[in-house]
């Protein structure tokens, strides 16, 4: 004990700069950073890495299939399958239409909500409400409303003598597609609206005042002050919403189930059918990975933008 004490005291006396914090100082900043990141990284590996690697192995017939053997047949089939090509096209049309709908509606709602209105909070809550609804529930609600025999929309139009026979909104390809875009547009526009509202609130009032002094009218203020200031946030909203819309499933599943025919069959619906209805697990995994790759490519501008801002 004494020897130990002596050793300790001796060490203290010869190297006074070292203290109780000494061991942590030995660690480099990057190691410390890594230690802090490690739990999150482990979580990512578990919730993202494992399923991703599993899906990759499944898509080449090596895992979670009947007779595991390496095969690229699922990917070759993708290239030849007209159903996949069609679903890809429908997904593209759907994403373009719904994202455009969200952006236009989002900005149209965000602009008045940014003004000093009485009871502004009531309008803000009301504008946010659709976003609180789960997508599958929104699909069912719209399906009830669009039902040709008992739906609210046909009943109203018949009562107002706008139509003489019920319209089968989900029964023709174009009207079904439009119904899907409108219902998802209604449900998900608040996300874009919130982003744009945040962007609008960050625009300095002085810029509008300067424009007004220069004689700009409201439209010119919008074009030359609001839009340029919103450019970054618009790109972020565009990219995030595109990613979100590429993955749409619940609403379409409950509203049209991909029909009529395959008029609203987007890639996630087709992937679900292949996996759970036809038991083509490897093919479904190949489809899902293709969609993931497309989504990743779409997200690149967002990643670039956020990284550039951080730099």
């Amino acid at each position: 004990m004494e020897a130990a004490d002596t050793r300790g005291r001796g060490a203290m006396s010869t190297r006074p700069a070292r203290s109780a914090r000494q061991p942590t100082q030995l660690m480099s900043e990057s190691t410390k950073g890594m230690l802090f990141v490690l739990p999150a990284l482990a979580l990512l590996v578990v919730v993202l890495g494992f399923p991703l690697i599993g899906a990759m192995l499944q898509s080449v017939n090596l895992m979670w299939v009947d007779h595991p053997h390496f095969s690229l047949v699922p990917y070759r089939t993708l290239a030849r399958d007209p159903a996949f090509g069609h679903a890809l096209l429908i997904t593209f049309y759907y994403v373009v239409c719904s994202v455009a709908f969200h952006l236009v509606t989002g900005i149209c709602v965000a602009l008045p909500l940014n003004r000093d209105l009485p009871f502004k909070w009531v309008f803000r809550v009301a504008a946010l409400l659709p976003w609180t609804m789960p997508d599958a529930v929104a699909g069912m609600v719209w399906r009830f409303m669009l039902d040709p025999l008992s739906g609210f929309i046909n009943s109203l139009l018949l009562a107002l003598h706008v139509i003489v026979q019920p319209i089968d909104w989900l029964g023709t390809p174009h009207s079904a597609f439009a119904s899907v875009v409108i219902s998802e547009g209604w449900r998900a526009y608040p996300f874009v609206m919130l982003l744009l509202l945040a962007g609008l609130q960050a625009i300095p009032r002085t810029q509008y005042e300067a424009a007004e002094i220069d004689g700009a009218n409201r439209w010119q203020c919008f074009i030359h002050v609001t839009l340029p200031n919103l450019r970054t946030i618009l790109v972020i909203a565009l990219v995030l919403d595109t990613i979100s819309q590429c993955r749409v499933f619940g609403l379409i599943y409950t509203l049209t189930n991909g029909g009529p025919g395959d008029a609203t069959t987007v890639l996630p619906i087709l992937t679900y059918q292949e996996n759970f209805q036809f038991f083509n697990t490897a093919y479904a995994a190949a489809m899902a990975l293709t969609l993931a790759a497309i989504t990743f490519i779409v997200s690149l501008p967002y990643l670039r933008l956020t990284m550039r801002q951080r730099a």
């Binding site: 029909g259 009529p260 025919g261 395959d262 008029a263 059918q273 209805q277 036809f278």
Partner: peptide
């Protein structure tokens, strides 16, 4: 046959397309 549900689905989708007027 294991393809029967998928075969029925092809027919269902095409019947649906024909009835809805897209084919």
């Amino acid at each position: 046959i294991r393809q029967w549900p998928q075969i029925l689905n092809f027919v269902r989708l095409n019947a649906s397309a024909a009835i809805s007027g897209s084919k």
